[in-house]
């Protein structure tokens, strides 16, 4: 019963991808998310709700992550480049799910390295868990025989959050920087 619309949707997205056009996406608010209150560099409190003039890209990761997180940051940096001056109204929020090893200062260095306009935040294990739960973000510490001690499996979504603090889209790792920039522009064009 659902097979035909699914095929039609896939064909449409393939056609769209082939033409290099950014697909129109439903940016209706999602029933997840909420305010985030964690610690940022300099031991200062970070509140997502203090950033009502910006659109946010929130993502969960950890600084020892050698590939996924650098890739996410590189993408955000590409999005900012595409946005030009509008990038000043976009804030990346890197939530570390590894408070044991990451400090907010360490996260700030990561963002600085990738020249991303953003903030690195973390907190106690309980607080981080509560934020991740609210966003439906998954992470799991995996003890391993690896010299790293433990690895962390985690969500790769970038949560697109509007100025009012509502999650409007889950950005997947296959979404292009062009598509992300278009969604950010759409949210910035909304009356605040």
């Amino acid at each position: 019963m659902f097979a035909r619309p699914l095929v039609a949707t896939s064909l449409l997205s393939m056609a769209v991808a082939a033409c290099g056009v950014v697909p129109a996406t439903d940016l209706a608010p999602l029933p997840i998310g909420g305010d985030i209150e964690l610690t940022q560099a300099g031991d200062k409190v970070f509140r997502l709700s203090d950033h009502g003039s910006e659109v946010k890209l929130v993502f969960f990761g950890y600084a020892s992550c050698p590939d996924v997180c650098p890739r996410a940051l590189s993408r955000v940096s590409q999005v900012e480049e595409l946005l030009g001056p509008l990038a000043e109204q976009l804030l990346a929020v890197f939530v570390s799910v590894d408070p044991e090893r990451d400090t907010p200062d360490h996260l700030a260095e990561w963002l600085g390295f990738f020249a991303v306009r953003g903030v690195g935040v973390t907190g106690s294990a309980e607080r981080v868990a509560a934020v991740a739960k609210a966003y439906g973000a998954f992470y799991e510490k995996k003890p391993s025989g690896s010299a790293m001690g433990y690895l962390i499996d985690h969500s790769t979504y970038l949560y697109l959050v509007d100025r009012a603090g509502r999650v409007r889209h889950l950005v997947r790792s296959e979404d292009s920087p062009e598509a992300i920039a278009a969604w950010v522009r759409a949210l910035l064009a909304e009356p605040s």
């Binding site: 391993s144 790293m148 499996d153 790769t156 790792s173």
Partner: peptide, 18 residues
């Protein structure tokens, strides 16, 4: 040390293992 790792992404979740 240098380790051999694989990664797999399913449903927006990345898992890495040695």
């Amino acid at each position: 040390s240098v380790e051999l790792h694989v990664m797999a992404e399913t449903d927006g979740k990345m898992t890495m293992r040695q």
